[in-house]
């Protein structure tokens, strides 16, 4: 797209993109480290992630301020307006992803000793999948690639399916041995966090589609999370 007649306007928009890229980089890094902390029972790494989260929060505030200032000063229209709106929304998704990564890091403390390693493997697999989704959607944003965003959006079903199977697996463990209820609950929350991260990635994908096309995503979202009914089914089977 050609430049604005007012050059400072281009700079304003470019600044927003840069800040969002920074936020994305941090969120990705924190999530990767949280997964590693979980997989390797590395409580030091977990603490690092917990301590770093406020960086993302600060960036979000900063981005919001700049975005509001840009709206006030430039009265953006059409794609410029979408660019700014989408930046605000994506920033809020990234901030949430940061929070979720931090929460996973916190839980890795509780999970670290009490659990046989193999139980955590499914969870780290889920984590890696959510990280992949985040990476792909951030790439799609940087290159404003609608097709790639759509791919991320469709892939979320896989993460939901994995969540369902982990959910069932953990339920079985808990039913077999009540002493496992504590640690398994932590794992369950961890799994839920990864699933939520996937949802935020699909939100970002939807925003990219809106940015590029000017229209909201039409199809029904690929929701395959069935755990809200699973518990009852399993209990009834007993």
């Amino acid at each position: 797209m050609s430049d604005h007649i007012v050059k400072a306007y281009d700079e304003d928009l470019a600044n927003l993109k840069t800040m969002l890229a920074q936020m994305g980089g941090l969120a990705e890094d924190h999530l990767a480290k949280a997964i590693e902390a979980l997989a390797k029972r590395d409580t030091k790494l977990a603490d690092y992630v917990i301590g770093q989260d406020e960086k993302i929060d600060a960036l979000e505030l900063q981005l919001e301020e700049r975005a509001i200032l840009t709206i006030a000063k430039r009265q953006p229209m059409a794609r410029d307006l979408r660019e700014i709106m989408v930046a605000i929304r994506i920033a809020s998704d990234l901030e949430r992803i940061g929070d979720l990564a931090k929460n996973i890091a916190k839980r890795s403390h509780a999970i670290s000793e009490a659990l046989p390693r193999k139980l955590a493997t499914g969870l780290t697999r889920m984590g890696r999948l959510s990280l992949e989704q985040l990476k792909d959607v951030l790439d799609a944003y940087t290159t404003t690639d609608d097709a790639k965003a759509l791919e991320v959006w469709r892939n979320d079903g896989e993460l939901d399916a994995l969540y369902n199977s982990i959910f069932r697996e953990l339920l079985t463990y808990m039913m077999e041995d009540p002493r496992m209820i504590g640690p398994c609950t932590h794992l369950l929350f961890g799994a839920k966090n990864f699933e939520r991260i996937g949802d935020h990635a699909t939100n970002i994908a939807e925003n990219i589609h809106y940015l590029v096309s000017g229209r909201p995503m039409r199809e029904e979202r690929p929701k395959k999370d069935t755990t809200s009914t699973t518990a009852f089914d399993s209990l009834n089977e007993r």
Binding site: S2, H4, I5, V6, Y9, R74, M77, R79, R82
Partner: peptide
């Protein structure tokens, strides 16, 4: 027109990109 114009010329004009 002001959120998602179809023509590039409209887009350029309303966003202040006309040379």
């Amino acid at each position: 027109i002001f959120t998602a114009p179809k023509d590039k010329r409209t887009q350029d004009y309303i966003t202040g990109r006309f040379g």
